Every structure is written in structure tokens, then in C-alpha cells.
Computed example of a mutant assay.
Amino acid sequence: MYKLLIADDEYEIRNGLSSYFPWEDIGFKIIGQAANGVEVLEFICDHSVDVILSDIRMPEMSGIDVAKKLFEQNSPIIVVFLSGYKDFNYAQQAINFGVKSYISKPTKYSELSTIFSRIKEELDQKKKSKHSVQKNMGIDKTVEIIQKYIHENYKEASLEGASQLVHMNPYYISKYFKEKTGGNFSDYVVSMKMKKAAELLSDMQLKVYEISEMVGYSNSKNFTRSFRKHFGKTPREYRNEE
């Protein structure tokens, strides 16, 4: 259920709208009433509200002022105006401040039903999009964890080791990592090994076979082969050119 606040300076109108329209049938729940714009702003400071159905003219603070305030705050709350005044200028201001609809009094059941059914569809779509974005950010976090694991454990990094961190099947991690980064898990590990090896080669005190072991290669020939494939030259050639 989406949360709806009704605001009107006439008690009979706001109470009638709250009590006699079947809001829950179209996905809304009345969570409060307000007699003016000041009360509206006070209410939304303490409560979560999805939609405000507000009279356009109210004492102390009008519906237009409320809409302007919410617009300036970039609030996600949807505003629908209710008014007995067929004033084009008011309607124009409502549009300028992002107001969704302008309903004339006396309200008609069919009009309320149509407008709020449309608003529910919009809110459903926003919720779906938000969920999709949040899901993708989880996705991003998982990739970050895997990459951090490889950076810190390049010497012995493995799918099994990564799987223990993100609680995913090793086979699925391999497929997942490639899908999200465009590269293989194993290739990423090798690239980190080679990056570290290149850094270590600047230390002339270290032998090539020692660097090979330091980055996780027990066989120096395999290390040299991987290094040449990655940089296009052997470790010794790379060192001599630096």
C-alpha cells in the first residue's frame, strides 16, 4: 500500500475523501489529514508519504506553496491538487512545480479512480526501477570484493578462495565475473601477477626465479612464458629496457 496524505481546510471534504472512497482497493492507505500547508510540511517531516492529495487554496500556506517547497527540495512525493477554483494561473503553477493532476471539486469517483490508478502504476514502476538499481549495486559490490581478494592474494588467488568470500559456487563465480567485467577470472589473476612482477623487476637485487616464486609461479619457465605473453618481452628484456 502506498501512503496518502489528504489536505483540505474544510473538515467535511478531507474527512469525506478519507472515509468514503475505497483507497485500499487501488493500492493506497490514508495515513493522515492536514488542514493547511503548514500541517502538511510538519506531517511529512515525521512520516513517510508517497502522495499528497491537497486543496490548492488553504489558509496559512497554500497547496501551491507546498508543491513549490517539495519541488525545491527535489522531493519524490507526488502531489495531486484538489480545487473548486477553475483558475488557469493556478493550474499553470501546479504544472511548473511538478504536480501530477488537477482535480476540480466536487470530485467524481471515476476521476479519482482513474488518476490514482495511474499514479499507482507510476509508483510501481519507480519501485521496480529502484529495486533493479539496488540489485545492480549489489552486483557491483560482489565484483569489488572478488577484485579486492585477487589484488591482495594474487599469488594464490583461486575461484575456490573467492567463493568462500562471496558465498557463491566457484563455477558460477567464473561465469558471473566474466559477464560483469568482460574478462575471465583467471586472466585477471594473471594480469595482477604480471603487474606485481613488473614492479619487482625494478629491484636489481632480485633474481628472475625469485620474482617467479614471489608472484606464485613454482616453475620459472612458466613465469617467463606468461610474462612474455603479457608484455611481449621476457622478464630480463623488460628489466634491461627499464
Rank of each mutant, 00 (worst) to 15 (best):
A67I: 07
K178W: 05
E72F: 11
K108C: 10
K128Y: 11
V143G: 10
T142N: 03
L112H: 01
S158G: 06
K180Q: 15
M194T: 09
Y154D: 04
K128C: 08
E144Y: 03
M204N: 13
H131N: 12
A91I: 02
Y109W: 08
K148T: 14
K120E: 07
E144D: 15
G161L: 03
K120C: 03
G98H: 02
K108S: 10
D65W: 06
M204R: 13
M194I: 11
S83P: 03
Q73V: 00
D203H: 10
S191L: 11
S75G: 03
M204S: 13
M137T: 13
A94D: 02
E144T: 11
L201D: 08
S174L: 02
K196A: 10
S62Q: 07
K126A: 07
V66P: 00
Y149H: 14
N136W: 08
Y172D: 15
I119R: 02
K175C: 08
D203R: 05
F81M: 10
T181M: 14
F116N: 00
Y188G: 09
S158F: 09
L82S: 11
I146W: 00
L159S: 05
S117I: 02
K128P: 02
A162S: 12
E144N: 11
I150L: 01
K126P: 05
S104D: 06
S174G: 14
E199G: 01
N169Y: 12
Y171H: 14
F177H: 07
G161Q: 05
F116T: 02
E111T: 09
L159C: 08
E144F: 03
E199C: 06
Q92W: 03
M194V: 12
F88A: 13
V190H: 08
Y109K: 07
Q134F: 09
I139F: 12
F185H: 06
F71Q: 10
L70W: 06
E156R: 12
K148L: 11
F97P: 02
K193M: 07
K175M: 10
N184E: 15
V79S: 04
L159V: 06
S132R: 13
D140E: 15
E111A: 03
I139P: 00
I95W: 01
Y188I: 12
K100L: 06
Q134G: 04
I115V: 15
I145M: 12
M204H: 14
P170F: 09
N169L: 08
